[in-house]
Computed example of a mutant assay.
Amino acid sequence: MDADTPSPRPSIYVVAAHPHWRDSRVTRRLFDATRALDHVEVTDLYASYPDFHIDVAAEQARLSAAQLVVWLHPIQWYASPALHKLWLDEVFTHGWAYGRKGQALRGKDVWLVTSTGGAESAYHPQGYNRYFFDAFLPPYEQTAALCGLRFLPPLVLHGAHQVDEPDLRDHVDVFVQRLQSYPDWPEIEDMTCPGCEVPDQDRPSTGGQT
């Protein structure tokens, strides 16, 4: 490549999940903002898989082509929406996403972009959620670590039902700017991903379940 030719932007895959788009103030705006970005591929899980039958091969191909995977969804009952969890269960398979032979995602990045109905003050030992919001992130972080993904600092908007329009516009602008500037984020320059090796005997090749 010529020295004066800019490097192509890394491919980004946004996995969006919201079971009730008509009721969405924040996730819908972020989802719509991605459509103008030519280096970003977006899948609306609830529109693509209304019967919950996920095309695993297609999803794995999209993940293989991307350098950054964005999980875009609201927090519901302290976790992701049901179809996003099913997507993880079926797509992040042993021997592909993790395990001794599962190297397909190793070295890529994952970014959680989410929102909560409750205000930030609700995520506090004296608030009704009893814990700081970070206490609910370990399942995301460990999923990333198990697959060799680098878990980037999440983008979180609290109080989604009450946020005013100027603050919501600012939030969308930050989201778009981050996608456009990836991977040139100063705070992730020295971030690494811990290694997590899963013994083969913990995942029977017969497909049996615990």
Rank of each mutant, 00 (worst) to 15 (best):
182 Y>K: 02
159 G>I: 02
29 R>A: 15
65 A>E: 10
100 R>F: 02
192 T>Q: 12
145 A>D: 06
58 A>S: 15
182 Y>A: 05
54 I>L: 11
109 D>W: 05
90 E>W: 12
138 P>D: 03
15 V>C: 12
37 L>N: 08
126 Q>D: 11
37 L>F: 05
139 P>A: 00
125 P>D: 10
197 E>S: 13
111 W>Q: 01
191 M>G: 04
207 G>M: 07
174 V>I: 15
56 V>D: 02
124 H>C: 10
80 S>G: 08
185 W>Q: 07
136 F>P: 02
94 H>M: 01
160 A>C: 05
55 D>I: 06
127 G>R: 06
119 A>R: 15
53 H>S: 08
75 I>K: 06
26 V>W: 03
71 W>G: 15
164 D>Q: 14
181 S>K: 01
91 V>D: 02
204 P>R: 03
208 G>H: 12
70 V>N: 09
179 L>D: 10
88 L>C: 07
119 A>V: 04
182 Y>S: 01
204 P>E: 06
63 L>R: 02
77 W>F: 13
112 L>V: 00
78 Y>M: 13
121 S>T: 13
140 Y>M: 03
119 A>K: 15
54 I>A: 11
88 L>W: 14
91 V>T: 09
78 Y>D: 03
59 E>A: 03
143 T>K: 00
106 R>T: 14
34 T>R: 06
12 I>E: 09
134 D>V: 01
170 D>M: 11
26 V>I: 13
54 I>M: 07
37 L>Q: 14
161 H>T: 10
91 V>P: 05
55 D>N: 14
148 G>T: 07
22 R>E: 15
107 G>M: 00
97 A>G: 11
100 R>D: 12
86 L>P: 02
1 M>V: 14
65 A>W: 03
47 A>D: 14
182 Y>I: 03
31 F>P: 04
35 R>E: 13
155 L>K: 04
79 A>Y: 04
175 F>Q: 14
108 K>G: 09
165 E>K: 08
76 Q>V: 11
63 L>N: 00
10 P>G: 09
161 H>N: 09
27 T>I: 14
153 P>C: 02
65 A>Q: 11
181 S>Y: 00
4 D>T: 10
2 D>M: 01
76 Q>L: 06
86 L>K: 13
9 R>A: 12
55 D>L: 06
180 Q>C: 06
28 R>D: 02
199 P>A: 12
148 G>W: 05
180 Q>S: 08
159 G>R: 00
69 V>P: 00
63 L>P: 00
104 A>F: 05
114 T>F: 05
140 Y>K: 00
31 F>L: 12
30 L>H: 09
32 D>N: 13
57 A>I: 04
9 R>D: 04
144 A>V: 04
141 E>Q: 13
123 Y>L: 04
175 F>L: 07
72 L>I: 08
113 V>Y: 02
105 L>S: 05
125 P>I: 12
191 M>Y: 09
8 P>H: 01
13 Y>R: 09
198 V>H: 08
188 I>H: 02
37 L>G: 08
38 D>E: 10
58 A>G: 15
139 P>F: 10
153 P>L: 04
98 Y>M: 05
84 H>W: 11
177 Q>K: 13
162 Q>S: 15
92 F>V: 01
109 D>V: 00
58 A>T: 10
85 K>I: 12
53 H>T: 09
151 F>R: 00
27 T>S: 10
142 Q>F: 06
80 S>Q: 15
176 V>L: 05
